[in-house]
Design a protein around this nucleic acid. Sequence first.
RNA 1: GCCCCCGUAGCUCAGCUGGAUAGAGCAACAGCCUUCUAAUCUGUCGGUCGCGCGUUCGAAUCGCGCCGGGGGCACCA
Length: 546
Amino acid sequence: MTPEELSLAISACLRDAVAAGEFTVDVPDEVRVERPKSREHGDWATNIALQLGKKAGMNPREFATVLRGRLVAIPGVTAVDIAGPGFLNITVDAAAAGELAKAIVEAGASYGSNDALAGHVVNMEFVSANPTGPLHIGHTRWAALGDSIARVLKASGADVTSEYYINDAGNQMNVFAQSVYNRLHGLPVPEGGYPGEYIAELADQVAVQHPGIRELTEEAALPVVRELAYAAQLADIKETLADFGVTFDVFFSEQQLHSGGAVEDAVARLREQGHVFDQDGAQWLRTTDFGDDKDRVLIRANGEPTYFAADAAYYLSKKDRGFTEKIYLLGADHHGYVSRLRAIAACAGDDPQLNIEILIGQLISVNGAKLSKRAGNIIELRDLVNWLGADALRYSLGRYPADSPMALDPELLKKNTNDNPVFYVQYAHARSCAAARNAVAKGVERTDFDASLLTHATENELLAMLGQFPSVVGQAASFREPHRVARHIEQIAGAYHRWYASCRVTPVNDEPVEPIHRTRLWLNDATTQVLANGLDLLGVSAPEKM
RNA sequence: GCCCCCGUAGCUCAGCUGGAUAGAGCAACAGCCUUCUAAUCUGUCGGUCGCGCGUUCGAAUCGCGCCGGGGGCACCA
């Protein structure tokens, strides 16, 4: 019996009690069932009586007593105790709990999938780094987190498109082209240009693809340099992301918004909605109507659209493509954009509370040093991945909530010891794989299964953790917090290690294979499956040997 | 000045949106391997949840005000 099944059964009891006139109260959609910290409080506990008692006009213990009469009749429930102010502590039959092991193995990779977000059509935009340089440590967290959020959303039934917005328009592209051009000719870095060493590499690539580039006049060469260097840089970004296990469904070009007329179109549409006004020769969006500090320029006095105008056009594109929820993942240094992005949604006729969601994540620091792409002293994502390994890096980024400030200590991560919890979880997975290999070699097979044999305290604990996995994935999706998955599989790994220490899958020496061994193999393999599924949601590999 | 985030064990951080005695890892100390992977496991030590009011049966969690740290406030991109 999983917590979900128990939760549903309790809801049914509540409805039956209301129908029988035992109390009068609105039955909530979901009854939360928790794993008590102390095992003296049963397998599962609920505070539903504390929540509903007052609403039913009864004191919570009285309410609990009435409800208890129905809960004890749930198949698989062996005891229901009332504790403290009105907690209901529920004890479940070992056989009912143990059935889960078989169910997980049979569900395989789909175990953990749930329908918490069924029907949601989500656009998930993240990274969106300028294609004027390599991805660096500042993009690392969002790449890892955004990809994992997309995965838990999909696992929870949402229709998700992950998207990378390429800022390939605007003056920085000209500066970028000029920087590469200067490098081709051995000239100094232009004022405000990009000094990084990667510029030289791009210049080499441009020269290879267009051998006569140095002979062209500057005026003729710059557009060519710009396009070739841009393509090379974008390819580099995509490769780096792929090596990091991060994939995007769509790479969306800002330039195409401009060239395709979408920006002008967006300004016209917003004007029709009555939110655009003219002042000082510029065209403004009245974002202050929707909580922004000040109104924002869409079209400058010189006729050029602002970056903000492209943002508005991009938002309308997402809306037109049918996304009901547009999620943006931004760094804390961009938090000032939140109110103006919400204002765009409102001006477009959307509900800024429902149709747009902006997740702000705190920046990562490395030994207190800030890193700047423009300064050229960047730490590349590619180097971090090569140095620390994609698994260790993704896991250490994925196990913290986005709003907690993070200090990555390279010396600590480089150690690759169990300071890094990824090894704890991966080791548990590899260990369970080894246990299964050994069991099969000794003739233990997953034939018969008798759930009532899984009576050890560590088995009870492990089964409980495995049973919570789908709801943890659902919560991770609902809250956009994949670290919940990481924390939970760490608990599963711990429960597995403790189980392994006291319950053997393979008989000792020449002792015969008993039903208990075969049954435990199911539980062992169920754990393997859940650990693998959890690691996959975080974009981390699940090694079978370590 | 205004806005956002953070403050929990010596260190790094969780704390399941208000529940039972606030947890984990690391560090420190003490134990368990001739038996499926000891990268594991068992135990001990360690807290004024930044401070103060408030909300209620009940607050680390919600509200207000302070203190401390980080980030941001362009007709830049």
